[in-house]
Design a protein around this nucleic acid. Structure first.
Length: 462
RNA sequence: UCCGACUUAGCUCAGCGGUAGAGCAAUCGGCUGUUAACCGAUCGGUCGUCCGUUCGAACCGGACAGUCGGAGCCA
């Protein structure tokens, strides 16, 4: 029994082969006088295998009906191609047809808009562009695991369902087994969550960070890489309700270690993709973003700029640039500010650190000035915020007073505070939006196009 | 959620007050070691939904829905 070869392997072969078997989907077919060209793609790479089907094949009449999208198995010899566009082609000895795609097959042999392809998200991975994007997505995931594994980080699986309503990173999706059409209420008219699956309110996680910190304070360096859910009604090309996040957390690390790891990681991933996905990247440079190569090389070969929040505000003030929101110490940075810093001023990724405590989360470490916290954001041209991170507040008393200061309930954070109570250590971490890194690496401008089946407000098809 | 634009054949769009058009796709035929092949013919639409203005609406007005872009939230 002949074993199936991947088209990628055959096209990179150094020799012709007498007997090969490929299986895949027909991209296009062209008839010639007494044979037919059938281009087959199996998803292993961007390129198709050109198959020569002679009219002497016993099912040639059937082969001539092969339409775009049809699935086949081809057995034959791998020979040097007479045509100029490919090194090899297969002289078919046998073509088995698995399934014909009828004439209502929605994918066409021409450019289709991203908006249209989203309506057929189940078929879009068969297009060149989306095939390339999702091969890169796979490789980028691998690169992330590789980066951390190389550095001795342990991979931790933090929970998807959370019982803590204090993760504090936005609106959450509720998880329940209660019959929504027949809710049991308590005497004061509230929903009786005692009857719910977990006996209390439960939600989908908005961040694995608090859990991650506990494992960092045991295993040393850890990272999480999993799905995250935000029920924000965000309608932008950069937000999704379900996305994947990478959250490293490092014991005995300060903000500068944090920034170093963040920068190293982004550079490592970019280099990895440039090295391992060259032909797929070429497609994106050709059809999606002509400046892509330049952007990626800029990241691969230059250090990121680093400025404190205070410096960033000052240099924006001095720039003479007209902003809609005037830069002033204390304001939250607007998209226009982030874009100015990354795209116009530094013209490369920039890390802004030490933000006023008022505009950042409770768990970030208070600096000695008493005004700022050890937070950092990595801002990237075109994407905006790629990473948000901080050194964590490890001092029990300071953390408790921050919780109180912000009007939060101390008892909701008991288990979190325990880590500061028993052998507390300085530690730091960050969160990186995986899809945003995908957008960075491919030049794709809409997050919906780098997720296989995107979930956004009013949209959960497929 | 706020602001703006868009929604016409399978796809991409034109038409902007008198009741629908192109290119591509598809189908059929021709030609050819071709390469999103080429040439010819055919098929294809209650113009997002509802309400209104008008003798008459794809075209004007309103509501709703969806999509896209910008903003906010952030990853």
């Amino acid at each position: 029994m002949l074993k199936r070869s991947k088209i990628e392997d055959l096209l990179s072969s150094t020799t012709t082969k007498d007997k090969v078997l490929i299986k895949g989907w027909v991209k296009t077919r062209r008839d010639s006088k007494d044979f037919s060209f059938v281009e087959v793609n199996d998803g292993s790479c961007l390129k198709n295998m050109q198959v020569i089907a002679k009219n002497s094949l016993n099912n040639y009449e059937e082969i001539k009906k092969l339409s775009t999208g049809s699935s086949v198995a081809v057995e034959g010899s791998l020979v040097e191609s007479q045509g100029g566009s490919q090194k090899y082609e297969i002289q078919a000895e046998k073509i088995e047809i698995y399934g014909i795609a009828p004439d209502d097959y929605p994918l066409q042999k021409k450019k289709m808009t991203d908006e249209y392809l989203r309506t057929i998200a189940h078929l879009r991975p068969r297009t060149n562009k989306y095939g390339a994007a999702f091969r890169i997505r796979s490789e980028l995931s691998y690169a992330i695991h590789h980066f951390f594994h190389d550095r001795g980080f342990k991979y931790v699986h933090t929970p998807i369902i959370t019982g803590s309503d204090c993760e504090g990173a936005g609106e959450m999706f509720q998880v329940t087994t209660l019959d929504m059409n027949n809710l049991q209420k308590t005497k004061d008219g509230k929903v009786n969550y005692g009857e719910d699956f977990f006996g209390k309110e439960a939600h989908l996680t908005v961040s694995g960070q608090l859990n991650g910190e506990m494992y960092a304070c045991a295993l040393g360096d850890i990272y999480t890489f999993g799905p995250t859910f935000r029920a924000e009604n965000s309608n932008t090309p950069r937000h999704a309700a379900e996305f994947w996040m990478i959250e490293p957390e490092m014991a005995f690390a300060d903000l500068h270690d944090d920034m170093d790891v963040a920068e190293d990681m982004v550079r490592y991933c970019v280099k990895h993709i440039m090295e391992h996905c060259a032909s797929d990247l070429e497609l994106f440079e050709k059809f999606v973003d002509p400046t892509l190569k330049q952007t990626l090389e800029n990241i691969a070969h230059n250090n990121f700029a680093r400025v404190s929040y205070t410096e960033a505000i000052e240099l924006m003030k001095k720039s003479g640039k007209k902003f809609e929101y005037t830069p002033e110490y204390g304001i939250d940075m607007q998209t226009e500010h982030e874009r100015f810093l990354a795209e116009e001023y530094f013209k490369k990724p920039v890390i802004v650190y030490n933000y006023p405590k008022e505009i950042k989360a409770f768990y970030m470490r208070l600096n000695d000035d008493g005004k700022t916290v050890a937070a950092m954001d990595v801002l990237v041209p075109r994407i905006g915020e790629l990473i948000g991170g901080s050194q964590r507040e490890e001092r029990y008393d300071v953390l408790v007073s921050r919780i109180k200061e912000l009007g939060m309930r101390e008892q909701d954070y008991e288990w979190y505070l325990d880590s500061r109570k028993y052998g507390s250590v300085p530690h730091a971490g960050f969160g990186l939006g995986f899809e945003r890194m995908m957008m960075l690496v491919t030049g794709i401008t809409n997050i919906r196009d780098v997720i296989p089946f995107p979930r956004t407000p009013k949209s959960v098809s497929f």
